[in-house]
């Protein structure tokens, strides 16, 4: 079984985020494999161990992404392709176009991505890619079974489980709970340095300027307001309710 894994390098979730000049500051920040993508890597390696085949990591991002890719290779993936040409960076729309171009030149039975990236959290790229490729997808999986070409996926549907069946080739995305990612072995780390990592550019992928034009624009980046102490309402219950509704509509303006 040939498996492609979509991997993004993101901030370590324990990092403190600071915004400077309207941008998230990256200096001195520790980057990791997007945690949802780490489930995807683990699932792919487990399927490879069970069914044989290959695991190829596909990634878009700056050259520092190599660190995350090497970790995935150390965990047991076989090879990787990184689109680190800046002209390939855009939004979810362009990411799906770029990944589709990377996918189309290879054989695959299964594509696994994370349910979302912990940095921008759109949850769109993988499912857009399935659309681009014209293959079915099952998102937010907590369990995946493959028998021959039959795929059974258990989806986390807002707390319930939805069981979806499909036939290979299919794209799936990983939700927390799908598996427990392994630690890369130290022997794996040493071998990872020798595994093939190919870099691709816009020219290699033959994408048109149209494909690479982002459809969204970031207007402003800001941090959420620091949490303030809560207020406990006093008095008669009727008055408390009135005050609460008034506050929510007119002061906090969270109810329209």
């Amino acid at each position: 079984m040939d498996i492609l894994v979509l991997l993004k390098q993101t901030f370590d979730t324990e990092e403190r985020i600071t915004v400077e000049n309207g941008k998230v500051k990256e200096d001195g920040v520790r980057f990791v494999i997007n945690p949802y993508d780490e489930y995807a890597v683990e699932e792919a390696i487990r399927l490879k161990e069970e069914h044989d085949g290959t695991v190829t990591i596909l990634s878009i991002g700056p050259s520092r992404t190599e660190e995350a890719i090497r970790t995935a290779l150390a965990m047991g993936a076989d090879e990787a392709v990184l689109a680190d040409d800046e002209s390939l960076f855009g939004d979810e729309y362009t990411a799906a176009k770029v990944l589709a171009a990377m996918v189309k030149v290879r054989n695959y039975d299964l594509i696994i991505g994370g349910n979302q990236a912990v940095d921008d959290g759109s949850g769109q790229v993988a499912v857009r890619l399935a659309e681009e490729l014209g293959i079915p997808h099952i998102s937010t999986l907590t369990k995946l079974e493959i028998n021959g070409t039959e795929v059974v996926g258990h989806r986390d549907a807002e707390g319930d489980v939805e069981v979806v069946t499909a036939t290979l080739p299919v794209l799936v995305t990983a939700q927390q709970g799908l598996n427990e990612p392994r630690y890369p072995s130290l022997i794996g780390i040493r071998k990872a340095g020798k595994k093939p990592l190919t870099h691709v550019t816009a020219a290699d992928l033959r994408l048109s300027p149209e494909d690479l034009t982002a459809r969204t624009e970031i207007v402003e980046t800001y941090l959420p307001k620091p949490k303030e102490a809560g207020r406990i309402l006093q008095g008669e219950m009727n008055d408390q309710v009135k005050e609460l509704v008034h506050s929510l509509t007119n002061v906090e303006k969270v109810v329209g």
């Binding site: 660190e67 630690y183 990872a192």
Partner: peptide
């Protein structure tokens, strides 16, 4: 080296 840094970070994470 990249490899030394990866080993350091893998052992740190485990430990």
């Amino acid at each position: 080296t990249k490899e030394q840094a990866m080993i350091q970070s893998a052992v740190r994470e485990f430990a």
